[in-house]
């Protein structure tokens, strides 16, 4: 099958990774989000550290904190997957082990993000 497109048209913005700068951009956007969310998370933990269960539960049930925790979980596990992906690509030189690890990291990222989201929703919406 002849592809009549100019080869440059097919390659432009895609490169050898086949997805262009998407990985790079997503890593940066989640990084900026995590800068603010990370500081918020540490502040929240420090506030609740010496309190009891009820106050921690009430703090996360607060809609403001619940929303930020939901977004924090998504950004965190997304950023984690993007970062570990590059580490595996760079340092794991066995093809099958690399693929297994990439799949494992993605499974954990999705599973963890959903688990965290469900926990926040249970806290925020009542059990």
């Amino acid at each position: 099958m002849n592809d009549l497109r100019n080869p440059l048209q097919r390659a432009l913005g895609l490169g050898s990774a086949k997805e262009g700068a998407n990985h790079w951009w997503r890593q940066r956007i989640t990084a900026v989000a995590l800068f603010f969310l990370g500081l918020w998370f540490v502040a929240l933990v420090l506030m609740l550290l010496h309190g009891d269960y009820a106050s921690a539960h009430a703090a996360l049930a607060n809609p403001f904190n619940a929303v930020l925790m939901l977004v924090f979980g998504i950004a965190l596990f997304w950023h984690m997957q993007l970062g570990l992906q590059v580490v595996i690509e760079d340092y794991v030189h066995s093809r099958w082990l690399g693929v297994v690890l990439q799949i494992a990291v993605r499974f954990y990222a999705v599973l963890a993000a959903v688990l965290a989201a469900l926990a926040v929703l249970r806290i925020a919406l009542g059990r």
């Binding site: 269960y53 963890a112 688990l115």
Partner: peptide, 16 residues
């Protein structure tokens, strides 16, 4: 920090 996310999960799940 990726390993440390297990602690975050533990905290959220037990809090719920």
């Amino acid at each position: 920090l990726a390993v440390g996310t297990l602690l975050l999960l533990g905290g959220l799940l037990t809090l719920a």
